[in-house]
Simulated assay, not measured.
Amino acid sequence: MYLKIHKSGNQMIVAVCDRELIGKKLKKGELVVEITESFYKGEIVPEEKIIEAMSNATTANIFGTRAVKCAVEAGLIDPGCVIYIEGIPHAQLYRL
């Protein structure tokens, strides 16, 4: 899985996605989401680093079966909050 961390001031946005999703454009009704290299393609890292980054994030944007499963199993995402876009699981995490 790819992990990319974006920092802005005291905000930390974490982008996580399954490798094969980079460059894909997904559609659901009028919603179009592009899984871009510039936002998602960071380093390939093990689950432990992904969980650590998501645990410290103010926001996380997560795409893919493995990535979302990792977040759910770590207790960071409620499975009921996962949506599917063209069959691909997607979840977001926000800390206020």
Rank of each mutant, 00 (worst) to 15 (best):
G80R: 13
E47F: 00
R95P: 07
C81E: 10
P79N: 08
S38Q: 12
G75H: 01
I22D: 10
K4E: 01
G23K: 11
C81S: 13
Y94L: 11
E20F: 14
E37F: 12
S38A: 00
K24V: 00
G80T: 11
E43F: 11
N61A: 07
I22N: 11
S8A: 11
K4F: 07
A91H: 02
I13A: 15
G64C: 00
Y2N: 09
E52H: 14
N10K: 13
K27N: 15
P79G: 09
E47D: 08
V32C: 09
E48R: 05
K69C: 03
K28C: 08
Q11M: 12
I51Q: 12
M12Y: 15
Q11G: 11
L3V: 07
V33W: 12
P46Y: 06
I77T: 04
Y84A: 05
V45F: 09
L93F: 06
G23Q: 06
T58C: 13
Y2E: 02
N10I: 01
K7Q: 14
G75V: 00
K41R: 12
K49N: 13
A60W: 05
M54T: 02
V16A: 08
A91F: 11
V45Y: 10
E30K: 13
G23Y: 11
I77D: 03
L96F: 06
M1T: 06
Y94E: 02
Y2V: 02
K7P: 15
R95T: 01
S8V: 02
E43V: 00
V32Q: 15
I50C: 03
V82I: 08
I77E: 01
L3M: 02
V33M: 15
R19T: 05
K49V: 05
E86A: 11
N56R: 10
S38F: 15
Y40M: 09
L3N: 10
K7T: 15
E52P: 12
